[in-house]
Simulated scan of single mutants.
Amino acid sequence: MTRLSILDLARIREGLDARDALDNARRLARHAEGWGYQRIWFAEHHNMPGIASAATSLVIQHVAAGTQHIRVGAGGIMLPNHAPLVVAEQFGTLAHLFPGRIELGLGRAPGTGPETLRALRRSPSSAHDFPRDVAELQRYFASDAAQDPVQAVPAAGTQVPIWILGSSTFGAQLAAELGLPYAFASHFAPDALLRALEIYRARFKPSAQLAEPYAVVGVNIVAADSDAEARKLATTQQMSFADLLRGARSRSRPPIDDIDSYWTQGEKEHAQHMLARSIIGSPETVRAGIDALAKETGADELMVVSDIYDPDARLRSFELIAGCVAAKS
């Protein structure tokens, strides 16, 4: 059975604020652990008025404190934006607060524009140090790290699981070389999915953290009681992608009846290309889509994005998705 997990974008809805988004994330996590989801992750996005997860470690703390056993983590921390020491201090602290439940996914891209990068006091060249920074971060979590001259207190010995994230083959190669689990961002960058998975599995070297390759595939899924309802709910994400292409930093919008009235033909083609792996529909449609994607990719786990405006409709989507997988077990 393919496992399921969640990537929550902590969307801020039009007319509401970040507290609404953060509380909805916590509410989702509470339900998700009852529905059998493995983990819920949050991503670092800066200077995005529609996303409330920039302070990712704080969001993780908020959600972990409101749940019992679901794993909570970063999907991911954009490591070029940070000193590895500080990341280790934060996630080591979380690991002590929530033992066995904290995970750290790492990305190489800064995840923001050049102006914001300057505000972060980072250089675009920082991405070149990514492999070295990952190794440094691993060292801070090691059992014997307390002997080192520089310690990330209280990270030593916590063994926080590290994941490599990617939307190209670079991350696949690094995850394979380091023997780490790998998550591919096919929910917005589907082109290199199959090639990246092939490289990761073929070159994987067992490590102390992981004996065999473990691949997670990101996928947008919008489920509702009918195909028509799901297609309408999906227009919220489609509008967000159109706004992104326009350079607009919008908040989450209510769904609309006719998405073609919102975007241009060029925006439609570009957005549909980025969203090509999406699964949208009734439980029957979603079940068939999940089965096909799992068969095509051999994914050990699907990480689901269900970007829906209404919190209750979003909960219903995740419940239906979980039911589609449970029905196959």
Rank of each mutant, 00 (worst) to 15 (best):
F98M: 03
L245V: 00
Q237A: 06
L58C: 08
R27E: 05
Q68E: 15
Q272N: 08
R19N: 15
R11H: 14
K295R: 11
T67D: 05
R132N: 03
E89Q: 12
T264R: 05
A119W: 14
G92K: 02
A242D: 14
I102H: 01
R27M: 13
R253I: 13
R231P: 07
G247N: 00
V87F: 11
A52I: 04
L58R: 00
S207Q: 09
R121I: 06
A83W: 09
D8W: 14
D225R: 15
A175P: 01
D257L: 00
A156G: 08
D257E: 12
G76K: 00
G323D: 15
K232P: 08
P124T: 13
I162W: 10
H62G: 10
A172M: 05
S5K: 07
A223Q: 13
Q151C: 09
L94N: 03
S207K: 06
A202C: 08
R121C: 13
L210N: 01
N24E: 14
Q159F: 09
V59T: 11
S5A: 09
P99A: 10
A185S: 04
I12P: 05
D291V: 11
W263K: 14
L4S: 06
A230I: 02
A271T: 02
N81P: 05
A185D: 03
S306C: 06
